[in-house]
Structures are given as structure tokens and as C-alpha cells.
Amino acid sequence: MDGNKNLFKFIIGFFFIFLAVESVGFYLGSDEKSPDSKTNKENKISLNALKTKNTALKRKLANFNPGGIYIVVDSGMNRLYLKKGNKTIHEAVVSCGSGNILKDPSGKRQWVFDTPMGDYSVKSKNTSPIWTRPDWAFIEEGEAIPKNPKDRREEGVLGDYALGFGNGYFIHGTLYTRLLGRNVSHGCIRVGDKDLKIIYDAAELGTRIFIF
């Protein structure tokens, strides 16, 4: 009987302590004061000065805009946008990286087939590009890696044009047009023939490519 009473007292005590801690937590956590209302009054900055600063900052930020044409790739939606300023000049359905993993049977190397996200630029432009198959292309197919570099060359698989943006990544054509709109590539951005021609003609060396 005494044991039950003590347990009951313990539970009640614990409950009250818990409630007290929760209340303190709520009080500390739900601080609604805006830090700016204080700063504002303390500094007494004039509204005009704030407006002038705002305009100057906006202008400064706008200066980072590369100007001219740039490419935006939404790798999740598999869309490529050719843009100028805030206007979209052309939109294309593409295929970005599959996100799959390939491990070298020796266990020494591993590849993750993601399209890299970030801010890049067109580093090379090629017509009738020839694909130099990297090691992973042979490993994926279960083939031996050739010693002669000539045996790595494959024609016709990259379409009519390729725009390189570094580290072996390209915007190029594809034989698998039915898979456009799906994440299926090894990291490159595959584009349909008609769209590729438009992108190739519009982009110059140095054109910015933003991938997210």
C-alpha cells in the first residue's frame, strides 16, 4: 500500500517538474520580439537613407548577373532553360543523372552517376562529337578496359553536338529520346536533336550553366 502511495507521489512530482520545465521552455522558445524594432529606434536611421542603400545594394547584386544568354538546368524535373535576363528563350526536356552507383569489381573505385549541381560555364563546343568511353563504361558493360586509347572511341552516341562544362560532363544528344524527361544518364545532360541545335547555336564559350 505504502509502495503504491510513494509511486503515486513520484508520478505526481515528476509530472509537475516536467510541466515546470516545459513552461520555462515555452517561455524561452516563443520569444516574439523582433530584433529590428530595437535597432531601428536605437540607430535612428532615416527612411530615405535606407531606401538609398536598398537601391544601391540591388544594383550591386544585379551586377553579378552574367548578362546575355545563360543556361539553367533543373535536374529533378529534367528541364533545361535557355534564358536571357529574366526571359526564357527556349525550354527543353532533357535527361539528367540517374543517381546510381557503380563499383569497380576490384573495390578500389566507385562512381555515382549524378549530374553535378552548381555554377559552370561552357568550356568546349564540338560538332559530330566522338565519345571517348571512360573506364566506368566498360565496367558497367562487364567488358575489359582496353589498353589502346583508340578502342575507347565511339561515334554517333553523343548526337550532332556537345557542349562541355568540365570534368568530362557534357550537354549532348542522345539515341534514347524516349527516355527524355527521366533521370537516366551517367551525369551528362542528354538533349533531343532539335533542342540541342538551338542550344548549341545560342551558347558560346563561357556561357554560364546553372544546375540545381
Binding site: G76, S98, N100, I101, L102, P105, E140, G142, R182, V184
Partner: peptide, 23 residues
């Protein structure tokens, strides 16, 4: 989860099935 490709597996498959990490 990401799919891990088994080397040489694509050649053996009769039906193409897309295994990818998508939105």
C-alpha cells in the same frame, strides 16, 4: 536509396527497366 549497378547486368536483361533516383 540509390541503386547499385551490377557490372554486365544490363546486357543480360531482356526488358529495360529504369532504375534511377528520381524526384
Amino acid at each position: 536509396a540509390r541503386e547499385t549497378i551490377k557490372p554486365g547486368d544490363e546486357k543480360k536483361k531482356d526488358n529495360f527497366e529504369l532504375e534511377a533516383l528520381e524526384l
